[in-house]
Amino acid sequence: MNQGLKAKGAWGTYGFLLPLFLFICGFILLPVAGTFWTSLFRDVAFLPKKFLGLANYIRLLKDPNFWRSARFTLLFAFGSVALEVGLGTIFALLLNEKLPLRGWLRAAVLVPWAIPIAISARVWELVYNYNYGLANYLLIKLGVSSGPINWLGSGWGAFLSLLLADVWKTTPFVTIILLAGLQAIPEELYQQAKVDGTNFYQRFLKITLPLLKPVLLVAILFRTIDALRIFDLVYVLTHGGPGGMTTSLSLYGYKFFLSSDFGYGSAVSVACFLIAFSLSILYLRMGKFGGD
């Protein structure tokens, strides 16, 4: 390395990195710190700000609605990720076959990914409509159900409706990641296994799955962290209902911000942050292992 270039570089490095740091600090790190700080105060409209210490967190631990939100968020995250990874694996295996029109098939799978969540949530809202939605129409026409189902009116119905809409929207992402993983597996391995007289199922278990495992883990963690912060879909499709049964942690925190209770809203947000943060640490750890 040329000594002159290196010496001149010291200032240049920071110059090139400065805008990145300013944006990340100003609009991510500082606000996160601000949220932590605010969570220690009573910070509501029309009352003087008052330091509370950990009182907001004690309230949080005793708040049944918070626990209900936490339970819903975790259930939703694990349920949707499990379905997405299962379906994504199948889709990726299909797209990895040598098929005519493969490019078009891949394009079709990407369509749900391209549509903004809020928009797809409204489309699903209409699909689930009791009187003239596509879901009830198809179920009755196919004879699966004798009468219309009130999808968004019951706790479980709303949960399943959210799950399906989320699976539709994010399976493409999982598919694409897993497809990249599949394409990295050398074809010779399969040829050799075929010569050895194994069937498709055995080859999947003995070759595909073990070699796909690192990519699978990445996809699972990425999606879990993303699912834990779900907001748009719930806000538009169920408004957190019926009766608050599908209120995610993000939506629960937002409701306090909306009513100008910034102290308690911040405490809810910090709880949501801590869950996601512990998972990102896990993710970075695994990422490093994968790189070695």
Partner: peptide
């Protein structure tokens, strides 16, 4: 860069209240 990628996993709700005030 790894740290920056980790930061992108933060939930947006953890900044939105403060951003509103800002």
């Amino acid at each position: 860069p790894l740290g920056v990628l980790g930061i992108s996993m933060f939930p947006q709700i953890s900044v939105v209240g403060y951003l509103f005030k800002l």
